[in-house]
Amino acid sequence: MDLYLQFLFSGLTLGSIYALIALALVTTYNITGILNMAQGEFVALGALAACTLYSAGFSLPAAFFLAVIATAVVGGLMERLVINPVRNASNITSIIITIGVSIMIRGLALLIWGTNPYSLPAFTEGGPLKVLGAAVNTQSIWVFGLLIVTVTGLFAFMEKTYWGKAVRACVINRMAAKLMGINPYILSLMAFIVSGMLGAAAGVFITPITLATYDMGFSLGLKGFVAAIIGGINNVGGAIIGGLLLGVLEIFGAGLISSGLKDAVALIVLIIVLLLRPQGIIGVVSGRKV
């Protein structure tokens, strides 16, 4: 029983990171119609930048904030330089461009940081907490907290503020939103900036547990993508559930069957979902083209 509980907590930690990445993917997709395959690289960039800043003598919070800002700038630049100029291209073209960007970022990261893993200390000192007999890393609680804060913040913005409603209006009906004077291109820029921030934050929070490497973004981005598909690619709630579910399934798969199975789980789940419920577990079928 304790073992299962232990798996569950580990799975939720991992799943929180997947959920954050999926959240950024879905938000960007809803606003721009583009799947940003470079989302995982934002995670790696944020994590690596924070490690470098921390070892250069910055405090942990300062390194965190600077890394988040730097990655937000990268997200914004990406949108201006390669997404916006081809805004009239088909979505598939844009998606392939994001894959190109992700390969480029990974290559640059390899040049800058090399292949060695980097680490950050846990945000709070002290040993694991005992919860119902299972050991919970304090850093895991930080990760879970980040997810909750992000989701709450996003929800409050979208549901309660005028600007959030303008974003939703653009998602619901892009043409009508344009007629109101809402500029989808500015929203697209915002989406990539926020994606950069979210990715970087997730990267910094997970680094004390998993370490940071130049290529960490590939697998995380892929898992986030699977999580988003599980939840129904345009559904924010689905992305969160999809991420958590995927994390938990991976840890149980690795723990109960074989640790070699960990990465296969995501793809097996993806295939099953696509075969049985292509619209996602929560998503509804939509013919809408953004």
């Binding site: 409603k165 303008a166 939703r168 209006a169 619901i172 009906n173 939103a177 007629l179 109101m180």
Partner: peptide
């Protein structure tokens, strides 16, 4: 082409 998922009030305000 109204904003279906938003309230009547929000639709008007967004106008």
């Amino acid at each position: 082409q109204i904003f279906n998922d938003l309230t009547v009030q929000d639709n008007l305000l967004l106008g």
